[in-house]
Each structure stands twice: as C-alpha cells, then as structure tokens.
Computed example of a mutant assay.
Amino acid sequence: MRWGALITAAAFISPGVNAAGATLRFSCSQLVVERLDPLINPGLMGSPHLHQVVGGDAFNVTMDQDLPTTASCTSCTPTEDFSNYWTAVLFFKAKNGTYHRVKTMGNPLGFGTASGGMTVYYLSSGKVTAFKPGFRMTVGDPTFRTAAQESKYSSLIYTCLATASTRSGSTTGFPKAPCKVGIMVSIRFPTCWDGKNLDSPDHQSHTAYPSGASGGNPGAGDKCPSTHPVSIPQVFFETYWDTSPFNDKSMWPDNGDQPFTWSMGDATGYASHGDYVFGWKGDALQRAMDANCNSDLFSNSINCPTLKTQSLAQANTCNKPVQMKEQLDGWMPSMPGDVVVH
C-alpha cells in the first residue's frame, strides 16, 4: 500500500478515537527561505542551495544551542515545538532559461490560512521513545537523479493535486503534466534508532527503516533491526507547492519536458530530501506520544490535552529575517548560489 492511502486514512481520525498509536498532525508556517544549512554546511554563510524552513526562530548557520531556551517563537501550532524542519526549494525554469521560485502554500485540508510552510506529522503504532535534545537527522540524497537511487528510501513522493484532497497517483519523480491545485511533496523519516548517537557523519546512519508487513510505515508487523532497536516516532512532512501560476503549457519546454527543478539543480525529482533538528521543550513530545494523541482534520485541532497550542494566525507571526541578502523573487538568470541543472 502506498503511503498516500495510509496517511489519508490517518488524517481523518475523529476526536476521541484512540488508534493503536499516535497521529499527531499540525501546521508549521513559513519561518524563512534562505541559503543556510546548519546540518550539512554548519558555520557556512551561504550553503550551496536554497532551503525553506519552518519551526523555531533559533534556526541559524549553526545549531549547537538548546533550541527551546534559545528560540523566542515557533511557526508551528504546538507552542512547545521549537524543532526545525526544512527542505530544498522548488523552481520553475522557463523556455528562455530564466528561473522563478515556486512558493509554498498552506495545506488546503485544514490549514489554508497558514503562510506557506508545511504540515508536520508525528506517527506511531505503539510505544515509542521520543527524540533526545541534540537529535538530528536527514532523509533523501540531493545528488540522486534516478528512480533506482531514490528507491533506497522508503517513501519520498509527489502527488499532482487535481483537487485539494487528491491522494492517488503518487510518483517518485516530478509529475509530467500541470497540476491544477499544486504539487504535494511528502517526505517521511525512518522509525528506528541505534539508541546511542544523536547524529552520525552522514546524518542518517544512526537511524533505519523497519521491516515488516507495512513496508516501512508505522504499523503492526514492523520490526526494527538489531542494529537500531529503539522505536522512535515517524516524522513526516507534507509541503504544498503552489505551481498553479506556471500551469500554462505555453511556458513549458517545447520538447515536453517538465519544467520544475529543485534548488540544488535536480530536474528529475529523485533528489527530494528533508532535514530535521529536534527541539521540543522538556518531555512534551514524549507525553503526546504516550497519550496516543491524534488530530481532527475537520476542526483543524490537535486532540491532545497535554500539549499547548496556538492559532494559525499566531504561528504566522513567527518569522526570521533573511541573513543571506540575495534575490529570491521574480525572474532570475540562475538559481541562488548560481546552481545549474545537472
């Protein structure tokens, strides 16, 4: 079963329904769009490619600080979540070779008034151990350009949105035709941890996907490998890219190629990737997982009395000034960092 079908069912859990685990779903508005990457390029003012970031405003060129005590606000609706979540940025390449940044939009299923950003999930199918302070990880590989390479990861997919509720027809590469509502990019992280390392040199080896009947999704039958025996919540992103301004096929290449590229120069889509730095305050995430908290799509609320939350309007006010002064909007001769498609 593809992940789209699983998450559609999970997203519609009603108030009071306690499934065999947690389905915590919430909105994180756009915090900043900037060429920084404190995981892959710590200390470098001007990472190789552009990122879109959500979460606590302690995000910076380095991330060695304690996020809950350093941040002054969070763009996520749970007010105890000062984590940072980020992905590459999508660009449209016109026939004349110029580029235009594609902006994120609020999830039309419940979070339409969010100022872009992404929808974040924490999922479990039973008892899990929440992340520890200092934990970080990545998933995906910005150098991948083939489906065979991308298959290393359990699920990094695209959904071409004919309507806001479209959850079928997912692909591992970019959609080949215009998408009426936009493109939803789904990124999910492994659910097994070695129990020792908060990070690893490649930011991935300390985590692993489970094996089992669910094919890596949280569910009955999953089993963590002996090398990574600790079950952790599954962090899952949905980013909605507003590609509708670029749906005019006369703007697309004459040879029929799709016109979108990631900010690191990937026009295939197979280099989709995500970054995560844990920053929940105290034991807030563990409490939510232990309580099997879930979310109600219809009232846009988190059914989790143990968590403190803020409104989307309040989350929208948490922003961080851009430190890298460069052109991000309008038509550009090249993407930020002079990245070329390769």
Rank of each mutant, 00 (worst) to 15 (best):
L67I: 13
P78D: 12
A5N: 13
G337A: 10
Q286S: 02
I7L: 05
L328D: 07
E34D: 15
N107V: 02
G173H: 00
V185F: 01
P321M: 00
H203T: 11
R2Y: 11
V54K: 00
L156I: 00
A5R: 06
W262E: 04
K249M: 13
S295M: 04
F298W: 10
S115A: 14
T113Y: 12
T104P: 14
A315G: 07
A19D: 03
S27Y: 10
Q204Y: 01
M63L: 14
M324G: 03
N96S: 12
N316S: 07
A114E: 15
E150W: 12
S263K: 03
G195L: 02
Y122M: 12
A162N: 13
F278Y: 15
D296V: 03
A284T: 11
S211N: 05
N292L: 09
D338K: 01
T268C: 04
G110A: 10
K93L: 03
F246M: 10
K325R: 00
F135V: 02
F131V: 12
D257N: 13
H228P: 06
K223Q: 10
G134T: 03
T74V: 10
P190K: 03
L161N: 12
L307D: 00
V53L: 07
P305S: 08
Y276Q: 01
S72D: 15
A11G: 15
A10H: 07
S263D: 02
D254R: 06
G43P: 07
R145F: 09
V341A: 06
Q149C: 04
A177S: 14
D254V: 11
T138L: 12
S226Y: 03
P336K: 05
V230M: 06
A177C: 06
S231M: 01
F131M: 13
L156C: 01
T74D: 12
H51C: 02
S200I: 04
F237A: 09
C224P: 07
L31F: 11
G112P: 09
T146M: 06
A288W: 02
C179P: 11
H342N: 14
G117N: 10
K320N: 10
Y153I: 05
L36N: 02
R35Y: 10
H273Q: 08
I302K: 00
G21Y: 04
K93N: 13
P218N: 01
H203L: 14
M45F: 07
T306C: 08
I7N: 03
Q310W: 01
D254Y: 00
L123M: 13
G110K: 00
Y121E: 04
G117M: 10
M264N: 15
M289K: 09
